[in-house]
Nucleic acid binder design. Structure first.
Lengths: 350, 350
DNA sequence: TCGGCGGGAGACATCGTTGTCTGGTCCACG
DNA sequence: CGTGGACCAGACAACGATGTCTCCCGCCGA
């Protein structure tokens, strides 16, 4: 107990936080002994342990995991990164939540970030997370190629791609069969008699979006329907732009009898446009990706559902098995989406 | 360039990650010089700088911020924590996103977690975040009192409460005027002629929920309506439980002519129940807290809206001003919700 | 009485980096 | 030709903790 240390006299006078040194000084033991107590190591007499514990409480000491990890042999930080598209969107949010649940079981914290399809942001944030020495990384990439990750992968950083496959590097991924889902959606509409089917899609630079458009075209081709480029509206980033686009379609033509909205918020925009046009019950709509309340729209929205919880759990499982040391060749998990008919997709053509 | 170091011979042979030592050895300069180059400090000749930069690239060296922060004087980690209710729910997700945006401007990463109203989880996660030395903390508490935070607050940890005010400690908070919002919702229904108004609410142990029920009662009292305890259904945690409760109300009575659903997913459950009962256009509903697509329901849902983006931005602003050193007395920001009439709340009683 | 043994606790080096200080080189100037 | 000051670069300690080793002490059996 050194009276020279102001903290030993009055804990509140502390400038920064108390360290093991302070605890050691106050309890009159060595640094190493404090470490032993804090880490619940054996070989400390109950009496000393008690003295240290009291000092810890008195000084409001809290362990500094960064200093600890620096010295520790394991090299783990107990942190993973999750860089998704937009944390406020229900798909990314649900994904994050599932990852968080797996992480919690592994006593790991999650650093989360939104990429908003900005390639530069991805590179910057990945670099940042590597600097923070995350034990692993979940990535819904905004870049078209990820060669920049090669060094990290070689250094042993576990990376799991989600929703989109890696390009230029080999890594684990969990994706949905977008081609299949888009075919299902389009076939469903064709099966209900539609031949003039429009598709609304995100930027085709995004792999997922491109595949959905391809699935749409394949389904049309398979049914012997010539596709009309004027019915393909791509590059739509927001619900509002989808709404605008649908209005344009019906004002200027060529008016479709059905719409495949290849992302959830584009389906929402479509529903808004159709309602304002009074066509909600005239034009069929199938959306890609389910969302809360889709069943409560008027008419209830038929969607191709991706099981987000399953995807997230799969991502988490893969990531933590890699972190645990699994060095098997990269796995590419592909999950099959399912079509959920609810009403909007079963409207017949006029 | 020490050939004794295997990494200098073959970068791929590296066991762990390259450190400044390795870079220094490969480029034939001292450790400190590498540090200068990496941190873009002045006083390094272009030639040496170049040599170091090449070595950095060759070894895939990445800076270790934990070691760096440990030594640095500022003591900042460039990390904040956000412990919210449930990251997959649109309210928490939007909040997180807004906080993330403010954090990014401050070059700070966000550790996110869901508390699910579990008090123990809150205490464990807060402790974990403190161990990780976050620069600040956003908390949507699951505990009823937060005395356990006193030590951290004294040690200077900035904490901003969101959606719920602190109890037992003094700290910044950003909340919505729930009392006002609930009164607005109830008055709106009364104004449309209703006198038998049910309320659906979360656990009353949650401050927010309790205040909404109180606002409901106050509005009834102000209108001279005797409140009927049988119309108050509290402790509802999920959309499914709200759906079940509404069904029960109409099966066993006392059937209300209007419902105030005091949380967004309870409103969703209510809408489902009413639709299955064929009462969507007979019974008025006002929800608390807007959500995507509420305008697309049938009928469009009237809600009391909290401006989540504004709340999140306010939280971020407060947090980072504290981190920057603002030591003014704790601020309690209260944001006024606004009623958004859309249809469901304007249905007259039968 | 002495040596061996085992448990408790400390000394010391170290993790990867940065702050401080010192020292060496080179050129311009008087 | 000597000196002063830029300018570069390195040596050393320190951040807060842990791994390893050593030391001390008391107890046991011979």
């Amino acid at each position: 107990m050194s009276p020279a240390d102001p903290r030993a006299v009055d804990p509140r006078a502390s400038v920064g936080r108390a360290t093991m040194r302070d605890v050691a000084a106050l309890s009159g033991v060595s640094l190493k002994t404090v470490s032993r107590v804090v880490n619940h190591e054996a070989g400390v007499s109950p009496e000393v342990r008690d003295r240290v514990t009291r000092a810890v409480a008195q000084l409001d000491y809290t362990h500094n995991v960064h200093a600890s990890n620096l010295r520790r042999t394991s090299g783990r930080t107990g942190t993973v990164g999750a860089l998704l598209q937009d944390l406020s969107n229900s798909f990314s949010a649900s994904l994050l939540r599932s990852i968080e649940d797996v992480a919690r079981d592994a006593s790991t914290a999650v650093l989360a970030g939104s990429l908003d399809e900005e390639a530069d942001r991805e590179r910057v944030l990945v670099k940042d997370l590597v600097s923070r020495r995350v034990d692993g990384l979940v990535l819904m990439p905004a870049t078209s190629r990820q060669e920049y990750l090669a060094g990290e992968l070689r250094a042993g950083l576990p990376v799991v791609f989600v929703d989109r496959t890696p390009h230029g590097v080999d890594a684990d991924s969990v994706t949905v069969d977008n081609l299949l889902g888009a075919r299902q959606a389009t076939q469903h509409l064709i099966g209900h008699g539609h031949r003039r089917i429009a598709v609304l899609s995100d930027l085709v630079e995004i792999e997922t979006a491109a595949q959905r458009v391809r699935g749409y075209r394949e389904a049309l081709a398979a049914a012997g329907i010539t596709s009309d480029p004027a019915l393909e509206r791509t590059g739509l980033r927001t619900a509002a732009s989808a709404e605008h686009e649908v209005r344009t379609l019906f004002r200027e033509g060529p008016a479709p009898t059905a719409i495949f909205a290849a992302r959830n918020d584009l389906a929402a925009g479509t529903a808004r446009a159709l309602r304002s046009l009074g066509l909600s019950h005239e034009v069929a709509v199938v959306g890609f990706d389910d969302f809360p309340l889709a069943d409560l729209l008027d008419p209830p929205l038929t969607v191709v559902r991706q099981n987000v919880t399953q995807i997230g759990a799969e991502v988490g499982r893969l990531l933590f098995s890699r972190i645990a040391g699994d060095t098997a060749p990269p796995r590419r998990v592909v999950i099959e989406p399912t079509l959920v008919p609810r009403g909007s997709g079963e409207i017949p053509p006029r």
